[in-house]
């Protein structure tokens, strides 16, 4: 079973929920840190890290000896990554999405494949959890291939928990797509609600069963609850706005280690998710 932990708004508690959930449940777990722009699960789990693999994407390089400046490569590129001028062709690596279109359409075989490093993924383990994390290179902007590479290590015999990036754009889709369940972590503030709505719309389009964790409950107002009632969005867990939890987090520690009563709460969360997945979800 694949559970993707997403949020819309950043800083709502995705990592707190993912890591504590992974540590609490009885099943064998793999945890994927797919927030590749700023992976941070390792700060809390302190895994022993092992194998590291690069994530490489092909980008075009033009052989000017063969090029006839016909512009077919430029015309097929949706991202403006090629500029065919009269005597020169410029390529813009950071705009390229590595779709391969330019290699295909060139009648002269003048578009050569150059390798570009996007980032890397690292394997590790922590307290019985098998851990994979993606990390994007500084200056790069293309996260989805790194996320897909992390997810290629999905073991169908394990429970897979994905710590997704914030937002609702391509990287988030890459981290939610084909999950069995999307767990949306929000906070009861106007910002939390605003971005939660966007996240819910996104999950609905993907047709994935989903439910809510309200973190810092007690803060803000009741609008998130009213919204969830209206949308028939099940609230599966509430984590109170509690100074103790904030301190534990700031020290890089696990809530379930310091406040053992939470272990049962996270197990209970997992049970609710499993039930919703079984009955095909609330909003499918």
């Amino acid at each position: 079973m694949i559970i993707s932990v997403a949020s819309g708004k950043g800083g709502t508690g995705k990592t707190t929920v993912s890591t504590n959930l992974a540590l609490s449940i009885e099943q064998k777990v793999q945890l994927f840190d797919c927030d590749v722009e700023e992976p941070n699960c390792h700060l809390f789990l302190n895994p022993v890290m092992g194998k590291k693999e690069p994530v490489i994407a092909p980008v075009p390089e033009i052989d000017l000896e063969k090029c006839t400046f016909c512009k077919k490569c430029m015309d097929i590129c949706r991202f403006g990554a090629l500029a065919v001028l009269k005597k020169e062709v410029l390529t813009f690596d950071t705009l390229c999405h590595s779709c391969g279109g330019c290699f295909e359409v060139c009648p002269e075989g003048a578009v050569l494949e150059k390798k570009r490093s996007l980032g890397d993924i690292e394997h590790g383990s922590a307290r019985g959890i098998s851990f994979v994390r993606g990390c994007m290179d500084v200056g790069q902007v293309m996260a989805p291939p790194i996320i897909r590479k992390v997810r290629s290590y999905t073991d169908p015999n394990l429970v897979t928990i994905i710590d997704a990036p914030p937002g609702t754009s391509c990287p988030v889709i890459a981290a939610m797509n084909k999950a069995d369940f999307v767990l949306l972590v929000t906070e009861p503030t106007p910002f939390g609600l605003h971005d939660l709505k966007l996240a819910v719309e996104t999950v609905k389009i993907l047709g994935i069963p989903h439910g809510l964790v309200i973190n810092r409950a007690g803060l803000g107002n009741d609008d998130v609850k009213r919204y969830s009632e209206k949308e028939h969005l099940p609230i599966l867990m509430e984590i109170p706005f509690d100074k103790k939890i904030a301190q534990i987090y700031s020290n890089g520690q696990m809530v379930v280690d310091k406040l053992p009563e939470y272990k049962e709460k996270f197990q209970d969360l997992f049970e609710k998710i499993a039930q919703l997945v079984e009955k095909g979800g609330q909003n499918r």
């Binding site: 590129c77 949706r78 991202f79 403006g80 990554a81 500029a83 410029l90 813009f92 705009l95």
Partner: peptide, 8 residues
């Protein structure tokens, strides 16, 4: 256009 307007 989505991206690369200046280049085009």
């Amino acid at each position: 256009s989505f991206k690369g307007a200046g280049i085009q």
